[in-house]
Write a protein that binds this DNA or RNA. Structure first.
Lengths: 256, 256
DNA sequence: CGCGATTTGTGCACGTCTTCACAAGCGCCT
DNA sequence: AGGCGCTTGTGAAGACGTGCACAAATCGCG
């Protein structure tokens, strides 16, 4: 479509690409599209239809088109999307054109694994520092990086331009670490500790709790089990769908 | 209405408590409430108000009340919620009254950490088996469990009642593992591999991609940077957002 | 050069989630 | 006993996200 000047052609960043403020739901899906696009590119595809890409990303094709339309018009009707161009655009919007430095605090069980996780590096992030509060861990070398004490955070921030911090400490230590991160200018935090962090306005926190995911699955298991588990009795609840729980619900209330 | 006898008082489980089908958004928050409640219980609180609990869980109090109301009426007006009772109820609804066995496939970098993660055990799950396709890893002992070959999955399923599987393999292996899990009767999968899994209907998949979370944060960083970098121009986007640019679920206020 | 096949971009309707605001209910104090 | 303050539970409104269905746009072919 004509001179739809690419809002953020990587080379040119002067005139404020006016990042369209995307719906959160769309933002959360962009990384998924990006991964699928990289796969397609590696497989030699130069273009891809919304149908093809949506299948690779595991979403509905209409949703994908709407998501992409928020970035601007980068598709060609009758043809599809240019894979390389779309990769470029999504990476630009996500701010991945610069490799971002990440500080990882907490080199325990989980932190250790994160330090060695190559998915970070392969997707535009660089672990700039490993930190821990436990003196016995300081000095340990993991994946080519030496663990430093968490109190050295200001020094680390001075060396690198740190914007993102990852907290992989026990819950009890997380808030303090968050405060320290905020103090050195970190404005985005990925929190693996099972607790709520309180941070000043303007700081983003995302939380990943592995056990919560399992609990959600557990609910669905429980639910599935409760549905299939009763052909014997009256069979009421089974045949009755949404409407029919009145019967099971109100059964003799008074008395026992 | 009023005589809501507890749908699933743990002692009494005969007559199918008719699990109310909760909104997904609510289900996703229940584990968070549960964690906060356990903290409160440990701190000696016997009751808690929706205000107090919502602060501890990092959500809006109206939302919390609505969520809990879906479970039934377990609060007392003018007083609040009975902590112990509410814990019992949420655990029941989430299906945590029985300790669920989980099979963990892929004992690489991440899988290793998951195997040692005590957050699973402390929240009602038990890692029943560690599996890997790499023969050189089979036999290794981690956290008291011996790694077995993934092809032994049927044997494992025969020993235990497996409903949940965790995939922590490289993306290339994930689909095959998923198929194997489904084949032995697993109906819920937690997938850490960065890829889309295709599973038959009736099987639930939840995905956790650590790099995606970082990319979402990166977007917000990029956004924040692009906003603060130009007071000059139209200033449209900056002034546009009235109250909050904190679109995510960040929360304030723990207080006390 | 025009036509048909194909695929994007989007208006619209629908469902879900969030938030406000307040009546109903409960306990306590007088 | 009665009133008062506090807190839950919920109706209603609005914001948000989803999916359908189709017009607009493009390419390839005859």
């Amino acid at each position: 479509m004509s001179q739809h000047r690419h809002p953020g052609a990587p080379g040119r960043a002067g005139a404020v690409p006016a990042l369209p403020d995307l719906p959160e739901a769309t933002v959360a899906r962009l990384p998924e599209y990006l991964r699928a696009l990289h796969n397609l590119a590696d497989a030699g595809h130069e273009t891809v239809s919304s149908e093809g890409l949506s299948a690779a990303a595991g979403v509905n094709s209409a949703k994908l088109r709407k998501d992409l339309s928020h970035l601007g018009s980068y598709g060609t009707r009758g043809v599809g999307y240019d894979v390389a161009l779309l990769i470029e655009q999504i990476e630009y919007v996500l701010g991945l054109t610069q490799r971002r430095a990440v500080a990882l605090v907490g080199v325990g069980n989980l932190g250790h694994a994160l330090a060695g996780y190559d998915g970070f590096a392969s997707r535009g992030f660089r672990i700039a520092a490993l930190l821990d509060a436990d003196p016995s861990r300081v000095g340990e070398e993991i994946n080519g990086l030496v663990v430093r004490h968490v109190d050295e955070l200001p020094a680390v921030a001075a060396e690198e331009s740190l914007a993102i911090g990852v907290i992989a400490t026990p819950a009890a230590a997380a808030q303090k670490v968050a405060d320290q991160l905020v103090a050195v200018g970190v404005t985005s935090i990925l929190n693996f500790a099972p607790c709520v962090l309180s941070v000043p306005e303007g700081v983003d926190v995302r939380k990943v709790d592995l056990a919560i995911e399992l609990q959600i699955l557990s609910f669905h298991e429980h639910r599935k089990a409760s549905l299939t588990a009763l052909p014997a009795t009256g069979g009421s609840a089974l045949t009755a769908l949404p409407g029919g729980l009145a019967a099971t619900d109100t059964q003799e209330a008074i008395g026992t």
